[in-house]
Design a protein around this nucleic acid. Sequence first.
DNA 1: GTCTATAGCTGGATAGAC
DNA 2: GTCTATCCAGCTATAGAC
Lengths: 210, 210
Amino acid sequence: MSGRKLEMSNLSKSILKDQAFQLREQAILDATTSILGSKGYDLMTMDDVAKAVGISKPSLYKHFKSKEELVGEALIRLIDGAIQYLAGLDVALSPLKKLITLLEWALRIRLEGGIPFLPSTSAHVRDMLLRNIKYMTHFFQLNSQLEQLVIAAQKNNELNSSLPIDVILISYYARTCDPTIEHLQIFSQMSHDDIIKNMLHVTFKGFNGL
Amino acid sequence: MSGRKLEMSNLSKSILKDQAFQLREQAILDATTSILGSKGYDLMTMDDVAKAVGISKPSLYKHFKSKEELVGEALIRLIDGAIQYLAGLDVALSPLKKLITLLEWALRIRLEGGIPFLPSTSAHVRDMLLRNIKYMTHFFQLNSQLEQLVIAAQKNNELNSSLPIDVILISYYARTCDPTIEHLQIFSQMSHDDIIKNMLHVTFKGFNGL
DNA sequence: GTCTATAGCTGGATAGAC
DNA sequence: GTCTATCCAGCTATAGAC
């Protein structure tokens, strides 16, 4: 009886511990995301992350065994967020409208200090992600959905059918890491809404569109 | 008489030395440009540059007193090239056609291993350049010409007048450092000409344009 | 599991011989 | 001006005490 009690107590202690561990892990990923957004991969140090979370560097390494794994997990979480956001969209929306809405979501995240979900501007980071199987799995899940949307939009004549799908998809990703966003923030002092509005116009209609 | 001879001899020796010095300086800038194009600023080391040129690191520092100065000079040379290219264009071309032609030139340079002439994707590099007065002087010289072209093209109805000039200009620069270029090279294996054609379409007409 | 302390390495920059 | 050799700062990652 007392043995059983002890067992349960240990179990609930362990659950609590896991919860705290999970919470700290999310806090680490939050900090990583924010620092990645401002400094980028190369300039982000593990000391930065540890200090932002309020833990020591060795503790950080108990959660993630390397800087590459840490960044990979942060990006995976972001991709999963995009997949969930897509899944939550009104099914009645047209393919093009879904693509626009998702990009708007990604741009807003970026403006609020987050990171582009892909593809990195740095060859180093790009190669690192290509080697990260877990990341690539999640990425392909998102990518195949986006590809279907692009194809459907082309069939609808919502998107130009003469453009190769790859060109549209890759350019679409590139808009989420476009330095235009930061430059407009710094030099033009536009509101977030105006930046997003203009970025969407340029992306879908170009400079002379409409 | 012999004194004069000696003087001339020293002079010509000095000229020769200057020429060799100038040549090596250009070689250093060539190597820097190429390495910047492939690895980017953060991953480019002074050892890389010295090795590519075939000189030692201290010799490199005789030419450029820091990594920041070296990169600044490489970018200045690139901007000056753009200014010269603009100046050499047929004056009969419309403002829009000039903008398209210059971007095509920049994209081709990039595809051949060069660097985007602006604006850097990295906050670190961007801040470094903002502090570089010589660089900013050259940049503004190019920028004011491009601004005039954009304004003229808007007056012509060649470019959408509802888009702020800043949005067009900054997006225009951004296309020269757009990771789409590399991704299309790596994943789609398109020819350079096709990549440029598609990039120009997306830039000026967007995804659904025309 | 958490910390302090440090190993090990890399890269920017320089001293000093020639 | 060129080299070899080296300094020093900063970073990733870990050892070892508690």
